[in-house]
Design a binder for these strands. Structure first.
Lengths: 223, 223
DNA sequence: ATTGGCTATGAATATCCTGTTGATCGAAGA
DNA sequence: TCTTCGATCAACAGGATATTCATAGCCAAT
């Protein structure tokens, strides 16, 4: 998942960024609204976390301009102000969710994933965010992978990788595509991280490892 | 699949080109509209990706001229402009689809394949993107060929070859045409790679191998 | 601060497979 | 029959993938 964080206070920004990275997410940081808008012009993010109090143009204005550009990226607003007025006006300007500071980090993460899930139109039936294939179950809400009922510990990147693989069952995915989704890098295709991680996953999946097939000259396929 | 990308910004062009290549597609790049039109005059593409903002003649004009030449190649328009007006006028000028920047790469790929599928008359029923003929099924999303229900391993070039053959069922394809589509080379016809690969494919298709008929002096025909 | 454990990443290696060529053999048409 | 075009084969070089290792960074606990 790719996240853009627009926050001027460096300490706070750093704190948030680290927490999100620990989730295996890729975080880009902008110190003010203009910079943020510039970045959004070229690249697409899954979620934008936007501080309300910014030097220069305010968070509200950023949000407004974003929507004026017909950009529908989910926006999570952060603010130190506790008044409900702010909240209401924020939502009216196109924010999708709102979190008052100080906040619980787990809550931020939960809400951000919720935003993302909503935006990507996950199945909203009973199997909320569960991906299954044979004895393999990945619960994206709990972020737990189960192999034949046994929980397998995964690192953040490994989780993201298995998630995207299982989500696109029976579809060949190019390395580039995986790199984009999991690592968020749009350049430097001369790395073999993907291969390394595929290897690790295969090992951890045990007998199901062979479900990840390599499509020579193309990438990998799950299923 | 052969794609012509008309985009002036080198960074963007490079980014797009890499991603498309990773999908196994052959990409030709033109830095401006005139160059693009020149290239189209000589060669045939499956899809044209066209930036709206170009130095010299605009993307809209390119599209218009293209259609004036009775060229029906599907056109995918890209633009940084936010207003919907642009979209409408773009489509009116003959573009087949439209994607506002910034876009999600997966979406670009999905849309481009959709365009291609529509143009080549792939099965538009539930078997989205599957080519079938008797016991032979090629799933272009999974990149898997099935012979009577049995998966057959193919190399990258073999996959492309069977795809183009099956997509142009009952049509004779010249070696040059195949060379152009699969190998992306439009010169040097004094190689027999095509013959070699046809041979390999025939072998792998087993009983269906004879579906690939050779049209003496012309090329090959599937069906 | 320092330490230890863990993750992420890049590099190096080894292995396997594909792509390509040129030669030779066979088949079809004049 | 002769000629031309296509089929097939073997072999090589380069490319792609798997796997392992070493390093760097991060976090938590001391």
């Amino acid at each position: 998942m790719n996240i853009l964080l627009i926050e001027d206070e460096l300490r706070v920004a750093d704190f948030i960024r680290r927490g999100l990275k620990a989730e295996g997410w890729v975080v880009e940081h902008a110190g003010d609204g203009e910079t943020g808008l510039d970045i959004i012009r070229d690249r697409k993010f899954d979620v934008i976390i936007l501080d309300l109090m910014l030097p220069g143009i305010s968070g509200q204005q950023v949000c407004q301009k974003l929507r004026a550009r017909l950009n529908k990226t989910p926006v999570m607003m952060l603010t130190a102000l506790d008044s409900t007025d702010e909240r209401v006006s924020g939502l009216r300007l196109g924010a999708d969710d709102y979190l008052p500071k100080p906040f619980d980090f787990d809550e931020l993460i939960a809400r951000v994933s919720a935003l993302h899930r909503r935006a990507t139109g996950y199945a909203s039936n009973g199997d909320e965010g569960k991906l299954q294939h044979q004895g393999l179950v990945y619960d994206s809400a709990a972020m737990v992978l189960t192999v034949d009922g046994v929980v397998v510990e995964l690192s953040a990147k490994e989780r993201e990788l298995i998630a995207i693989l299982m989500a696109s069952k029976n579809k060949a995915l190019s390395r580039e595509r995986i790199l984009n989704s999991v690592w968020g890098t749009h350049e430097d295709p001369m790395t073999n991280v993907v291969d390394v991680y595929i290897g690790r996953l295969r090992k951890k999946l045990g007998p199901y490892g062979q479900l990840i097939a390599t499509v020579r000259g193309a990438g990998y396929r799950f299923g």
